[in-house]
């Protein structure tokens, strides 16, 4: 078993066009490191230079937005489903 990760359309350039990829790790940060080792460049798109999750990106573990569960420190485990999406917002 592994953790299934859903990739938004634009980031599929890093995954050979695949909608979903698999990875492993105990935390979201470790999972992203693992994904980046197989799909180079992915981490740079998700994590800022300061080591925080990019504010224009939403990440969910199962149904939970990780903003409310510890961001990159959110615990993950085999069988979880992670979804990465662009945040949609704006204003005049």
């Amino acid at each position: 078993m592994a953790i299934e990760v859903r990739i938004p359309t634009i980031l599929r350039t890093h995954t050979g066009g695949n909608k979903t990829v698999e990875g492993s790790g105990d935390t979201l940060a470790a999972l992203i490191d693992d994904l980046d080792s197989k799909h180079s460049g992915l981490k740079n798109r998700l994590v800022t230079e300061e080591g925080k999750l990019h504010r224009f990106v939403n990440v969910y573990v199962n149904d939970e937005d990780v903003r409310f569960t510890g961001a990159l420190d959110t615990q993950v485990k085999d069988g979880d489903s992670v979804t990465i999406l662009p945040a949609v917002a704006g204003g005049c």
């Binding site: 938004p8 634009i10 980031l11 740079n44 990019h54 990106v57 662009p86 704006g90």
Partner: peptide, 15 residues
Amino acid sequence: PSRTDIGYASGPAAD
């Protein structure tokens, strides 16, 4: 588009 609109639309996961 406002500056905020452009910021979000240019986000790393926005297509």
